[in-house]
Amino acid sequence: MSLVGWGQIGLLFVVVLALIKPLGLYMARVFSGERTWLSVVLGPVEHALYAAGGVRADREQTWLGYAFALLAFSAAGFLLLYAILRLQHVLPLNPQGFGAVPADLAFNTAVSFVTNTNWQAYGGETTMSHLSQMAGLTVQNFVSAASGIAIALAVTRAFARSAAETVGNFWVDMTRATLYVLLPLAVIVALAFVAMGLPQTLDASVAATTLEGANQTIALGPVASQEAIKQLGTNGGGFFNVNAAHPFENPTALSNYLNIVCMLSISSALVYAFGQMVGDRRQGWALLAVTGVLLLIGIGAIYWAETYGNPILASLGVDPAMGNMEGKEVRFGQAMTAAYAAVTTGLSDGGVNGMHGSFTALGGMAPLVLIQLGEILPGGVGSGLYGMLVFAVLAVFVAGLMVGRTPEFLGKKIEGREMKFAMLAVLILPLAILGFTAVSAMLPGAVASIGTGGPHGLSEILYAYSSAAGNNGSAFGGLSANTPWYNTTLGIAMLFGRFGYALPVLAMAGSIAAKTRSTATAGTFPTHTPLFVGLLIGIILIMGGLQFFPALALGPIVEHFQMLSGQTF
């Protein structure tokens, strides 16, 4: 590790911190239904959309109505995207002349983008027409992110309101999140990306002659626009197969910086907006402190492991000072590869600028653990906030049990009913991840897809289902996942991970909204102090981490010890 490397990481945190308050305040205004400086332009568009969709903006929904709207919208998105992918060969904007996407891959991809996972079992530049990329995948990049924000808003209102029957209007929340937050920022960032050298064209490719005289086809397309929302919406689905390691998707150290800042900006600002909307900004800062601590630990773990390197290579004469550069782009180096890897898995982005499967065993384990913690650092836009709030509810419950008081969070009593919903949400991840991993590790057909034997092979399967169920979408590499088995089961894991988590959370929101909000007294456990921050970190590590420890022990941990004893995979 170097001072320069840590300086780069530190600067990243400074830039994001500077963005949190202005963006968070703006988002709080948008989601409270107040006028903003964009209302003059976007207000008529918003009302036209409501009129076209028959939405009564002033009519709010119960948590169940909100959940049904979310599911109906997602089902419609799945069907539309599936149809586009299956019919792309007869649809326009297909200059490459690609055929229909195979049925199992279309299912996997449609579910993947509707659930904000953006797992890519395909190579974008060799599979998807421009129409599929733009009208299919990029549209879902916007609306799936907006759906996540909408769920988080419902939970936020549950804490902010007292004795309320409703938690908001899903259609209004989704429309405002898309129109006022995601769309304007995506336009600005896309233009910045174009200025940094990302292609934005409807041409299919250019032909080039290499130095050896061979002909090469260099794929092009509307890359910058997709890259912008890919990061702002924490989607992660890249235009190219190798994602942000591709020089057209992430050409410079500066574009890499902007990538990471975009990932962190909205998701962090949303936590601040939560504090603003519940009337106590300190609550938002406390949750951001938890995020910052755990994210720094994650970045530090990867950075340390990759600069420590592989002693087997050193024994072969490779300069140990270089650490492990396998799977990394030289233009980013170890520090900014570590920062990208931790951020993209700490939240639910899933884009990659390096190959996580080529990291050292412990360096590869860190992104895996960050996904398994629930991607709450600060999480996918929306999904991270409501995931963190579930852990906060668990933390105050544990604290209440320890001191013998009725647990309370933001003036709302946390009782058995809320705990049942919280636990149903928390348990869905281990169920989907460990269940599907165990089955795949036993099926000869599924095992045949792994690229490496030994514990690394288990890590490949474990990572794939963690990424899918956690709605992350990053790939470990090595696993040939474009098979009917993996396309189908990973798709189901994505649906369970997204909605199996969100539905109990919405139920919890409905239950909490109905409670009367009491004012804090001397006996109230404060939830904005360093003590609570420490408690919450402990709960996250215990509840989120320990469930997966046995599987990790059989994968990356044993691989690390085998590396130290001279065996590598």
Partner: peptide, 30 residues
């Protein structure tokens, strides 16, 4: 254009989401 595989995968996706809607209804009774 629609073939058996399409019917299966559309049913799988839409059916899973419909199952989740039933799950939500069940949660409302807790």
């Amino acid at each position: 254009v629609f073939i058996l595989a399409d019917i299966i995968f559309i049913a799988l996706g839409a059916g899973t989401i419909a199952g989740l809607a039933l799950y939500a209804s069940g949660l409302a009774r807790i």
